[in-house]
Each structure stands twice: as structure tokens, then as C-alpha cells.
Simulated scan of single mutants.
Amino acid sequence: MQSQHRLLVVLAHPDDESFLCGGTIAKMSERGVHITLLCATKGEMGRRMGNPIITTREALPKLRVEELKRACEELGISDLRFLNVRDKTIEFESFDLLAERIVKVIREVQPDALVTFHGKYGGHPDHCAIGRAAEFAFLKSGDPNFYPDQVFSAFKVQSLYFVLWHAFYDEWIKENGMSSITRVNIAGTLQKKIRALRSHRSQTLAVSELWGNQNPSLPFLKKSECFIKGNSPTNIEETDFFQMIERLG
């Protein structure tokens, strides 16, 4: 069954989408959800350049963009956009300007749901910074007095979710409980996630288990991906981003 839903994913670096929510993105795409990925940087400060080295520091940004495009093809992301912020500097960018730029994308794309990083549990300064800006944009995009636009009018996104990185899973559950998360079963799209990760060769060639095993066992390759509910009721179990929207009609 084809869905008319639209999903906006706002992340910091090429490969964030595959590591953190690739299986869910692929699953939503298979359902016919239109997916826009807004990537803040081109990953030019990435620690790795292949193993063995396959690029130079100067050529890395262009390569990572090409790798991300291939990953998007694997996951079914039909709309890829960049904010062109320099890698490892998002936290130093003007918060208001970042929020304004994300609001403009929201008003153009008109997504039903938005996925981004949690401002505290992002695990990286870039992640937390873009997550805070995206959350603020989520709150303000429906306000016609917030950066009025003659082309795209105010639009309120219905649902907000934050990726829950496996490194913070136990801490989050201990503090907030299981009812605060949405768990998406990705068993059917796990292989797409693995292929998307392999598209990011410059960053993943060093992860030998990912390449040397048909069914690699890694902490970011479980059969489910978890997301912190940004505004969904915690007393109702969810298994995807659109259940509550559909329930409310």
C-alpha cells in the first residue's frame, strides 16, 4: 500500500543516516513514504579516509557526498539536501540562522514527521547542535510570524522523533522508561542498511566485521532501531512514525 506521508530527516554528517536510522528509512520508503534528508555538513573532517586510504583530505568532502548519494539510493531517500555547514563547527554557527534555514525546508517539504538528534543525547557536538536547531524549527515552523516567507507559508509538523544511539540506550531507558521510545522493527530492511553503510566506504572500510561477514554482528546492526518520542504520548506503544498521525486522522 502506498503512503502519502512525508518524512524529513535532519542530521549532521554523511553516514549518520545509515548508522542510526537506515533500516527505518528503508522501511518507510518501501511503504511509499517520501523522504527528504537534510544533511548539515559534507563530512570533510571525518577521521577516516579509507583502509587502506582511498582519498586525500582535500578530496574527502566530494567523495563523502558521492558516498551519501549511493547510500540514499539504497535506502530510498529521494530528496537529498545540504546546509553546507563546515564539519565540526555546527555548534559555532548562528542558532537563529540554522533554525531559519531548517524552517524554510520544513515549509517547502511539508513533512508529517521530523527525525533529528536529541540535543543532549546526540553523542557529538555537531549532532547535538543540529538537533537543537531542528527541534526549535519544529516548534516554530507553524508560526506565521516566525520568519515570514512570501513563497512558503507556515506549516506545522505533526510528529517529532530523536534518534536513540545505541551508546545511550541503557542510560535513556533507565532515566525515562521504555514508554518514551518508539521501536521500529527493521529485520526486513537490515540488509539495505548494511549495503548503505558499505556505500560509505571511506568511513566503514576500517570496520572489518561489516565487510568480512554476510551477517555482521555489530551494536548498530540490531533488528530494531529506537527513537525518542518528541511529542507523542508515552502511554501508547508505537512501532513507526505515522501510527499516531493515522490514529488521529
Rank of each mutant, 00 (worst) to 15 (best):
E171D: 15
H127P: 00
C72A: 07
R81T: 05
A129N: 03
S153L: 08
E171R: 14
R70T: 05
Y161R: 11
K174N: 13
V151Y: 02
F155V: 05
I54T: 14
E74Q: 15
F92E: 12
V163T: 15
K88V: 10
F138T: 09
N145A: 07
W165S: 06
L98E: 12
P61K: 09
D149T: 14
S153E: 14
G142P: 11
F117I: 07
P148G: 11
K120M: 06
R64S: 05
Q150L: 14
G131I: 08
E67P: 02
H127F: 09
L63R: 01
L98K: 05
Y169E: 13
R86G: 04
R70Q: 13
L68I: 00
A137E: 06
E58W: 03
P125F: 15
A113G: 15
I90Y: 06
P144T: 09
R47M: 11
I102Q: 13
K174A: 13
M45D: 02
G46T: 06
G131F: 08
R132Q: 08
L83E: 10
K69H: 11
L83K: 09
A129V: 01
F146I: 07
D79V: 02
C72E: 00
A113N: 12
Y161I: 05
R132P: 00
E66G: 02
T56D: 05
P61G: 05
G122T: 12
V157E: 05
T116Q: 04
F136W: 08
S159D: 13
G119S: 13
I130D: 04
A133G: 04
A129D: 08
L164I: 11
G46W: 06
R57N: 03
K62R: 07
Y121D: 06
R47T: 15
P148C: 10
W165E: 12
S159L: 01
R57F: 02
E66D: 12
S94L: 04
I106W: 01
G142Q: 03
